[in-house]
């Protein structure tokens, strides 16, 4: 197993008290595998990624275990964690347009990854290595001499991908890596990300809110709601037989060929994260909710006889058709 996360929780300290942004999230990812996390905005996807990178601002992490390549990360010191970033676990950021420093050349911003991880190169060797990385993501080698403002959004995000693979990490965390880009460019950049990830043999955790785009990319999918993973499993099983009403509503809301352009959306709004709701966090919006949903919180459990990895946190999973 490449990554194994057990009961990860994150609380943000806010003026109004703790906000429970991520609650008891568990998932795992095998070597070279692709796991996607979807959920509406505010459901805790970015917080999960930042917690794995230990880059939360003002958040407190609790976890029974975060295992990367057989290494337990929860007790790791901050300096050791720094060395692990990008070397073992890299990240492709969300805001392609603003994630590069505006006053530094691309070569400097790529080069210091090597410098601060103790990888030394001669001048021309460094140029060649950076050029090679850029070519692998479909850019020309001399993009390294440019400043970010001279590049398009898609090119910037490709630069970020090139940086993520620079040290050959085993795991890439990509937080909505294409959401800031045009629809046309999104597909190309995602394809590039997929290609370099395969070439590298790295596992990838892809965050997104576009179920359709995700369905083509990942092997496994996790659906987050209010900081909880409400359903996980192989993406095909999830689409064929969703076992959580929220997942089903997400899938039903996708525009299809027959219902082109209509996007139903889901009625209601997500719960406040400041209080832990009694019962199932989804029950106020759930059309099927019964008494037990209002009183007892469902834990993720196997819901598919043919696929033991398909889990859902719903009392009524079996009744869903």
């Amino acid at each position: 197993m490449l990554l194994d996360v057990r009961n990860l929780s994150v609380e943000y300290v806010t003026p109004k008290g703790p906000a429970y942004a991520v609650n008891d999230v568990s998932f795992s990812l095998k070597k070279g595998g692709r796991l996607g996390l979807v959920g509406e905005s505010g459901s805790g996807k970015s917080t999960t990624v930042l917690a794995l990178m230990r880059l939360l601002r003002g958040g407190r992490i609790e976890a029974d275990g975060i295992d990367l390549d057989g290494r337990e990360l929860t007790g790791l010191s901050d300096p050791a964690y720094r060395k692990l970033r990008f070397a073992d676990m890299a990240m492709v950021p969300q805001g392609a347009m603003s994630s590069l420093n505006p006053v530094l050349r691309i070569s400097e911003q790529m080069g210091d990854i090597f410098d601060d991880h103790g990888v030394r190169h001669g001048r021309s060797e460094r140029r060649a290595i950076l050029g090679d990385l850029l070519e692998r993501v479909g850019l020309s080698a001399n993009v390294q001499d440019r400043y970010p403002h001279e590049l398009s959004g898609g090119m910037k995000q490709r630069v970020c991908i090139a940086m993520a693979i620079a040290l050959g990490p085993d795991l890439i965390l990509a937080d909505e890596p294409t959401s800031a880009l045009d629809v046309m460019v999104q597909k190309q950049v995602l394809a590039t990300l997929g290609r370099v990830q395969r070439e590298l043999g790295a596992g990838i955790l892809l965050i997104g809110h576009d179920m359709a785009l995700m369905a083509h990319f990942v092997d496994d999918l996790g659906v987050m709601y209010a900081g909880r993973l409400v359903e996980t499993g192989p993406v095909r099983r999830l689409f064929a037989k969703p076992r959580h009403p929220y997942t089903k509503m997400l899938i039903d809301s996708l525009p299809s060929f027959e219902r082109r352009g209509t996007f139903k959306g889901i009625p209601g709004v997500g719960p406040s994260l400041l209080t832990q709701l009694e019962g199932c966090p989804f029950h106020p919006r759930c059309p099927m909710a019964t008494d037990i949903c209002r009183s007892k919180r469902p834990d993720p459990r196997p819901v598919d006889a043919e696929e033991p990895r398909h889990l859902a946190a719903c009392h009524l999973a079996e009744e869903l058709s």
Partner: peptide
């Protein structure tokens, strides 16, 4: 944030 993520 990205500079931190890079492990600089």
């Amino acid at each position: 944030a990205l500079a931190e993520a890079k492990g600089l």
